[in-house]
Structures are given as structure tokens and as C-alpha cells.
Design a protein around this nucleic acid. Structure first.
Lengths: 295, 295
DNA sequence: TTGCTCCTCACGTCACGTGAGGTGGC
DNA sequence: TTGCTCCTCACGTCACGTGAGGTGGC
């Protein structure tokens, strides 16, 4: 019974005390771990061990007569380490390269690099997670709203990120500037739900399908819809089709002796993500109000 | 110029206002976004769009004469949403199933499920990250240690997780119990660096290759190597081969009128992860000491 | 002899990426 | 006519998983 000496790969395969005795003696029995047992110890399926063997990442000893795979105890920690790296998303090709940095200082450098890499990945995950959260919030707001009523409510500040001002051509449709906004936002930022910003209630009444600018409902945004008393209304329709909501808001304001001040914020609470019919998206328009003089 | 109406898939493909006018009129031109432009807006490679089309996950309109792909503005947010989900690791097959929960309340439930799922994933990442960190700490400790000297140092508490007591057979080798320890630790916990615990200095002197129990250097562990004054020594060798370190520690204690109290902790600072030669692993032995009576 | 374990191909899968070779629009 | 864009196969890749069919050890 002899062992084929595997090619060095990740280095974790040195021949350790295999040829201690004379005559290429068999290694001590306790030191041989069959693949299946090794897999149990390291919690790795045997198919994975075979694959790592095949691509020369992590090689076992092979018995010459039947090709059985055996691992050494000093491969247990190494295998567990590889598993940690793969679960962290490090590609196997990079793990192979660790071989060359297999000294204390080299490994310390490599681990530090990986930490930085992981910090970036975690940041991306957190950002994506945040997008889901914003969607949840908007959907929930839409579900609990009384969409037929125009109301006056105290709203908390809503962080947003504002885009540059739009520049609609004479015949241009809503979505042209919308697409421009989406492409212009900083390179690898995620797409939060987008809303329309109108300079004033007057402007909203006039061109309610052409916002002065677009904004994202981005919780890390540096702008905000400030806290305050807001006139709030809802409408159902497709993007850029707010229907008569502007008029309804204006009517309500007039009836209740309210003066609209500042911009109108237009947010789609239910869009294609949770609504099958594009003509039935739920929009929320908000504009800050104060009590008017006695008329 | 007519459009083939795509099969419903994720629902984001309803025919919206395509057949508004008489005679199957062409949709308004501004509403058609060629695949390449759509890809830029959503930051998705065209190859991915084609793939999603192929597997019926997200289908564009197709021009009947040349098969060109066109997307509608109301697919932008949906595509971005899909991208968020895929980046969070949700398989495309699950994303397809979202179709059925495409109502406000259904989507709210689904998003909540995904959040829980993500919390689990982030927890796994954090745990793996933590393993890397422990390795870094140990490697660094080994690099900055004066490995030839025996010293007395004030050490902070080190959190660990202790295993059950070992039960070595008469002729049993170190690694048998070591493997048993690794397989017995709770099912899906990760493998932190493992150390050996000896009940007392006397026992360590006697059987320094057979710890009373094994422990992991697990920062979330509920046990600890308590803070205190420790006699500390180092040795190079393979697992279960601490060499003469026990004697050197005992000698130093006798020379300096120190009394060892409590257990000996044996930790491998440099193992197969950062050291190519298995006979050269760096081990650290620590045992708490107090000043002896005047002899 | 009977299970049980191990082996080697070979092929499948998941989510795309990458040409090769050909057509269409200004 | 000349680029440029779009198309459709077909095949590659990454990290394995899954049998099919055969051998080996107690």
C-alpha cells in the first residue's frame, strides 16, 4: 500500500510523516481519514471534496491500488478555512492563489484585503436591503390610506435625493425625462422608488404630468420633504397621469381656507411591483399648507 | 409594425395601451425603449435581458418583422426591483413566483419573508467574518511574540467555547478525540481555531499531547480564559507534539518562585493556514501563576 | 455471498458571458 | 454603400450535484 504524492495545491498537502519508517512504510493508521469521515468532520459533501481534488485546489492522499481518498488531520483546519472563504464569496481561483501568501505576514495581509472586500459586499447588501425596506414602507402607506379622501396631516420628514431640473421639450412625454433621471444618477447607486417634484401648486395644476425634477425616496439622501402639515390626496392611474388630483387638492384648500406653500411631492405608493394593472397604480400627492387669512 | 404579445411572466408584461387606437395601431413611439437603452437605464447587461426573456422571467415586446426587443417605461422599476432581489441572492425561480403575490398585501408578506431570510444570511456572513478575525488575531499574536522566551504577562480575558471532556483510549492518538470534538460541536456552527485545555500543570507535564478537553477560540463563546497573570511559553511542532514546553514552563516557575494554579491553555497561533511546514506550527501555552511563599 | 462503501465518467444546473455568422435601419 | 445595431444559435464558465455502472473490503 503506497501513496501517490499529490501535486502541491494550496500547499495543504505536504507529505507529512508518510515516509518515516524504512521501506516506504504505511503511515500510522490513525492519521488516515477516509473522505466520507473527513467530510463529516469539516461538514463538506464528498462531491465537493472530489471537485476540489479535480481542480487541484485541495488534494487528498490516494491509495495506489484502489484510488481511495484519505486526508490528514492537519488538513481539517485548512478545509474549514476554505469553507469560510467560499461562504464569504471568495472565488476558488483566488483561494488557490493563497498558496503563495502562506506565511504569517502574507496571510495577515491577505486576510486584511479580504476584510476590506467583505466590507464592500456587506455595504451592497445593506443598500439592497434598504431598497426593499422603502418599498415595504410605501406599500404599507398605500394600504392603510383612505385613498378617496383629501386630508390634512402632520407628516414627519422624509429623506429623499433630488435630481437635476427637468427640461421637457414641447411635445415630450413624461418618461423621456424620467429615463434621463434614472440614467444620470450616480453610477452604481441603486434604484429607489422615484417621485416627482413640482415647484408649486400652481405649476402642479398646470402641468401635473411634468415634474420640475425627479427625486428618489432614498433614506440616505441629503435632501428631504420637511416635516409639517401637508394636504394629502391620492389617485389611481399610470405614470404621468395624475388625473384630477391637482384640482381636488386645490378645491379642498379653497373650501377649508388653506394656503398651499412650497412644492408638491408626487410619490407612487403602489406601482408595477405590487399592482398588475398599470392603469391602477396608486399615487400620493402632498403639499404643505398653512391656515389662510379670514376670508 | 405589430407586436407579439408576450406570455405573462412575473406579470410585468401586460399589454399596456398597445391596442388603444383602432386597427391594432402602433404604440406611441416614446413608450418604446430598445433593449440596449433599457439596459443602460436599469444597469443591466443586454445578455441578462435576453436570458430573462428566454426563461420567461421578464419579457419585452417583440417587433414581429425583425424580432427586436422593446421595453415599456412601466418595466423600469420592476427590472430594478428584480436586480435588487438577485443581488440579495434570491434565486430567479423564486422571483418568478412573485407573480402570484403581486398585490399590495401579498407583496408585503413576501418582502417580510425575504427580510427574515436576509437576516439569516447576514448572520452567517458575520459569523464567517468573525472566524477570519480570530485567525488574524492569533497570527498577529504569534508574529509579535518572542517565541524563545518564557514570560509572565498580564493577559485579558479570552472568550472561548469549551467542549466535553475527552476520553482517550490507552493507545489513542491526539487526533481521534480532536476529530470527535469537531464533529460534536453544534450542527452548523463554524470552525474556529481549536485549543487544548489541561486540568492542571501537573497533568500537562504528564500527558501534554492529550488535553482534558478541547475548546474553540470563539468570541461568542460563553466560557473564557479569565484575565490574570499568566506564565506564557511557545513551541514549534505538529499538533499533539508540544515538545519540552511543559518542562520549560515548570522550570521557569520553580526558578522564579511562582506557583501555577488552574488549567493550562494550549493554542496554535500559526497552523496550516499560514505555515507550510506541519512540523513548524507555532503553539502557545499559558497557565495562571501567583507568587509562591518565600522558600 | 451480502451489503456497504468507494470509484470514475458523464451529464445536469444555475445565471449568465462570449463570440460566430447573419440581418436591418439611417 | 458604410457603419452600427440588433438578432439567433452554440458553446463556455463557475461550483458543484446526481445518477449509472463498476469495483473493493469485512
Amino acid at each position: 500500500m503506497t501513496m501517490k504524492i499529490p501535486k502541491a495545491a494550496f500547499g495543504f498537502t505536504e507529505v507529512h510523516r508518510l515516509n518515516k519508517g524504512p521501506d516506504d512504510a504505511m503511515p500510522e493508521k490513525e492519521q488516515l481519514i477516509p473522505a466520507s469521515e473527513f467530510g463529516k468532520i469539516c461538514r463538506i459533501p464528498v462531491s465537493t471534496l472530489k471537485y476540489y481534488d479535480e481542480i487541484d485546489l485541495f488534494k487528498p492522499y490516494r491509495r495506489a491500488d484502489n484510488g481511495y481518498r484519505y486526508y490528514s488531520p492537519h488538513q481539517i483546519i485548512a478545509m474549514s478555512f476554505i469553507r469560510v472563504l467560499t461562504e464569504l464569496g471568495v472565488p476558488l481561483s483566488q483561494i488557490s492563489e493563497l498558496e503563495s501568501s502562506r506565511t504569517p505576514s502574507g496571510m495577515l495581509r491577505t486576510l486584511h484585503q479580504q476584510e476590506l472586500e467583505l466590507d464592500r459586499k456587506l455595504e451592497v447588501l445593506r443598500a439592497n436591503y434598504s431598497v426593499l425596506h422603502v418599498h415595504q414602507d410605501l406599500i404599507f402607506t398605500g394600504m392603510t390610506a383612505d385613498e378617496n379622501a383629501v386630508t390634512v396631516e402632520e407628516l414627519p420628514a422624509l429623506p429623499i435625493r433630488m435630481g437635476t431640473r427637468t427640461n421637457f421639450g414641447p411635445d415630450e412625454h413624461f418618461y423621456g425625462e424620467f429615463a434621463r433621471y434614472l440614467t444620470s444618477t450616480s453610477d452604481n447607486s441603486l434604484v429607489y422608488p422615484v417621485g416627482g417634484y413640482f415647484d408649486s401648486m400652481e405649476r402642479y395644476l398646470e402641468v401635473s404630468d411634468r415634474p420640475s425634477l425627479f427625486f428618489s425616496v432614498d433614506p440616505s439622501g441629503s435632501d428631504e420633504r420637511p416635516a409639517g402639515r401637508y394636504l394629502t390626496g391620492y389617485a389611481r392611474g399610470y405614470y404621468g397621469e395624475p388625473g384630477d388630483i391637482a384640482k381636488r387638492l386645490a378645491l379642498y384648500a379653497a373650501d377649508h381656507n388653506l394656503v398651499c406653500k412650497g412644492p408638491v411631492y408626487n410619490i407612487f405608493l403602489h406601482d408595477e411591483i405590487c399592482e398588475k394593472d398599470p392603469n391602477h397604480y396608486l399615487m400620493q400627492a402632498t403639499v404643505q399648507v398653512k391656515q389662510g387669512g379670514i376670508s
